[in-house]
Write a protein that binds this DNA or RNA. Structure first.
Length: 705
RNA sequence: GGUGAGGUAGCUCAGCUGGUUAGAGCGUGGCACUCAUAAUGCCGAGGUCGAGGGUUCGAGUCCCUCUCUCACCA
């Protein structure tokens, strides 16, 4: 009997500023397969993850969208959960780093570090945007490379010549946020003294916690010597404020891995599990992190050091995988190869992607290529042609010539397995269970799949040799036909049990086909005999290569404006159209055509329409068409809007009225000030303009959708 | 630039601590079969294992040099 292990597993936290794409899926699918495998083996295994919600990019994206950061991350969280669920990623908990649990844990861990003397204050100089009044991360400063002069380079390194430098070295630097020239400014930051953990980290890494290739990679950093780690950021920042340090926030990479604990804490809160059992320093549970190689540094240096410094256990292992490429190329939006989970799921069964990736996933750091033509041939050949075919070709005989009952093998004696016509063949399948399990365990799923498919070939060969379709023509040989197909179906059953971690739905359907209720890994060791099967229903259908090719967005960049694209273009065009002109330009173009091409719901959702209350309305001196409106948009605060409705409305009649505004319109500088939105009105313009209003009950800030 | 990974049949890859004629799947040519979702089975073609040098009785497998590809650089 295998010793029952207690295992906690995580996948890297997806960043909450965009949708789940196929690169994320590579990681969660790999992890999910490993977790399902552990569960099938009878271990106690938990799988948690969360959204990574903090940091400057989220803060700025929310601002750009005209919504609060909280609104943004809540929306993204719902989308992420839905995508993962449809991909059959079986999280025991999926949380958010913006949770109260995480805040408490961050503070507790930070105070532990500080009280143990692992935190140090230092003054640093950093690029500062005076207009936006914020410090700028390196990636938010752009300019010419000081070494080679290439334009439009980020503040940390040059993509052209590879030079590394600091933002202050850039020539003609500008802030990406405001477009102004940044200045250097001093600020006090908090550093985690990583350097004092160097020896322990070396030992931890040598203990086998990481793959050999990763250990070699880390050596590079050790030979350079570890640098202490800046864990603080200045206000404004979306994150958690550091205790006893007003205006200072935890750097997103400090609170993100702690999010693993926080997500598990949520699971503990609704079960009898105890966080302490898994994280105390002498815990005998296992902790496994699955990550991509881009975030190696954080997980193999900072994170174990933080855990150790805070008096907790370190990870059992960190499993690092390579990147996903599409047709041999890096994923890219402009090439249309940034395939979102949604795009995939709208077209194909989730299990096909799970299988394809599983068949190519090794235990190393190599990048993995999703080749679309290979995708369909592989699925059609392996799953439909070989695997499912075994059941498909046997089931008919059992149903037709044996009234749906498998052979019981009663004519021979002995154990169940030996009552099959070819006991040795079954024994071979049963014995393979251990080496397949070893491959799964070491995350070499490609090897597991190879072995399973070799067995599938053996099963088809067996059926071919025994030719039940020939025997079935002689009534006296029907028992033999039944026995052969019973053997075939049992071989299929063993294979499906081995594939359960990869193909959970197909496996469940197969289990129901055998009229069974549960499969563990050991179920494959013993065949089932003499039972009735359910009528066979196709378990998988073939993929059309042409449809697969369309996974890539062949038209990723919107074409120039034309009648057919008019509506799609509106959000973009509107974003550049000042409010005052909205009544002439945009409404004219819209009314001109009797509707046009469809837009997707996502495209529509990009327009943030809100209910707003007019709190002040004035004439604009010198402008004969404009009114200056001050509106309250609930959680988004107050906005100043210059609206071209003077001919149609008396300002006094507007005060206190509810109207509809576009809240995420890019602010537009006009002669009379900056307009921070757009009011919605119908009509050709001039005196014939009619503002839109919600029915009573609506309140400022409500989103219109 | 530094570091890491990798270059094995048309494509995707396996080849563990060096050992008989280098493997699989897909694709391809031929044959067989017709139970099965034009599925399956059998036979074949196709590789001087990136290049050169070295160690060894023997190297795709170890060492050195070169070359190309990819990735990472807090």
């Amino acid at each position: 009997m295998i010793k029952r292990r207690r295992i906690l597993v995580t996948s890297a936290l997806p960043y909450a500023n965009g949708p789940i794409h196929i690169g994320h899926l590579l990681e969660v699918i790999q992890t999910d397969i490993w977790v399902r495998f552990q569960k099938a083996r009878g271990h106690e295994c938990y799988y948690v993850c969360a959204d990574d919600t903090h940091g400057t990019p989220i803060m700025l994206k929310a601002q750009a969208d005209g919504i609060s950061a909280n609104t943004l991350i809540e929306r993204i969280n719902r989308e992420h959960k839905r995508d993962f669920a449809e991909m059959l990623i079986d999280f025991d908990n999926f949380g958010s780093t913006n949770s109260l649990d995480n805040k408490a844990l961050c503070e507790r861990i930070y105070l532990n570090l500080r009280n143990a003397g692992h935190i140090e204050k230092r003054t640093i100089r950093q690029a500062y945007d005076e207009q936006a009044q914020m410090f700028l991360p390196d990636r938010y400063v752009k300019g010419e490379c000081p070494t080679c002069g290439t334009a439009d380079q980020y503040g940390d390194s040059c993509e052209s010549c590879g030079a590394t430098y600091s933002p202050a070295d850039l020539k003609n630097a500008i802030s990406v946020v405001s477009g102004t020239t940044p200045v250097e400014k001093e600020s006090e930051h908090y550093f985690f003294k990583l350097s004092s953990f160097e020896e322990d980290l070396v030992m931890w890494i040598q203990s086998g916690a990481v793959q050999p290739g990763v250990a070699r990679k880390l050596n590079e950093w050790f030979t350079q010597g570890l640098k202490d780690w800046d864990i603080s950021r200045d206000i404004p920042y979306f994150g958690f404020e550091i205790p006893e340090a007003p205006g200072k926030y935890f750097y997103v990479w400090f609170d993100a891995p702690i999010g693993y604990l926080a997500s598990f804490a949520e699971l503990c809160a609704r079960t009898s599990l105890k966080l302490e059992d898994f994280f105390k320093v002498d815990s005998c549970t296992e902790l496994h992190h699955f990550i991509g190689k881009d975030i190696l540094y954080f997980h193999t240096l900072f994170w174990p050091a933080i855990l150790q410094a805070a008096g907790m256990r370190r990870p059992t292992s960190v499993h690092t995988h390579g990147f996903l490429t599409i047709n041999g190329q890096k994923m890219s939006k402009s090439r249309g190869t940034l395939i979102t989970a949604r795009r995939y799921l709208e077209r194909f069964p989730c299990e096909y992607l799970r299988y394809y990736l599983a068949a190519k996933l090794g235990s190393g750091l190599d990048d993995l290529d999703l080749n679309l033509s290979e995708f369909s041939t592989r699925l059609n050949s392996d799953i439909v042609g070989k695997l499912v075919n075994i059941a498909s070709r046997c089931a008919g005989f059992i149903t037709r010539s044996a009234s749906g009952t498998m052979s019981s093998g009663e004519q021979s004696s002995g154990s169940l397995a030996t009552r099959l016509p070819e006991p040795q063949l079954y024994a071979e399948f049963a014995a393979a269970g251990e080496s397949i399990a070893a491959a799964y365990e070491s995350r070499d799923t490609a090897s597991a799949i190879r072995e399973i498919m070799t067995l599938a070939d053996r099963a088809n060969q067996y059926i071919d040799q025994r030719k039940p379709w020939v025997l079935a023509k002689s009534p006296e040989k029907l028992l033999e036909v039944q026995a052969i197909c019973t053997q075939g179906l049992n071989l299929f059953r063993a294979l499906m049990i081995y594939l359960q971690p990869v193909l959970p739905v197909m496996a469940t359907k197969s289990m129901h086909f055998f009229r069974e209720t549960a499969w563990s890994w050991e179920s494959a060791a013993t065949p089932i005999l003499g039972t009735r099967i359910a009528p066979y229903e196709p378990l998988a259908t073939r993929l059309d290569p042409k449809a697969v090719a369309q996974l890539i967005d062949s038209d990723p960049i919107p074409p120039p404006l034309g009648p057919a694209n008019m509506v799609t273009a509106i959000p973009l065009a509107a974003a550049l159209t000042p409010v005052a002109r909205s009544t002439s330009n945009v409404s004219d173009t819209l009314s001109a055509g009797a509707a046009a091409a469809h837009i997707t719901i996502d495209e529509f959702m990009r327009v943030d329409l809100r209910v707003a209350r007019v709190i002040a309305a004035d004439l604009v001196e010198g402008a004969d068409k404009l009114l200056r409106l001050k509106v309250n948009v609930g959680e988004l605060g107050d906005r100043l809007i210059l609206a071209g409705i003077r001919a149609a409305y008396d300002p006094q009649t507007l005060i206190d009225r509810l109207i509809v505004v576009v809240a995420n319109l890019e602010p537009r500088k006009m002669r009379f000030g900056i307009s921070e939105g757009m009011t919605l009105a119908a009509g050709p313009g001039g005196k014939d303009l009619f503002l839109l209003s919600p029915d009573s009950g609506a309140s400022p800030g409500m989103r219109i959708k």
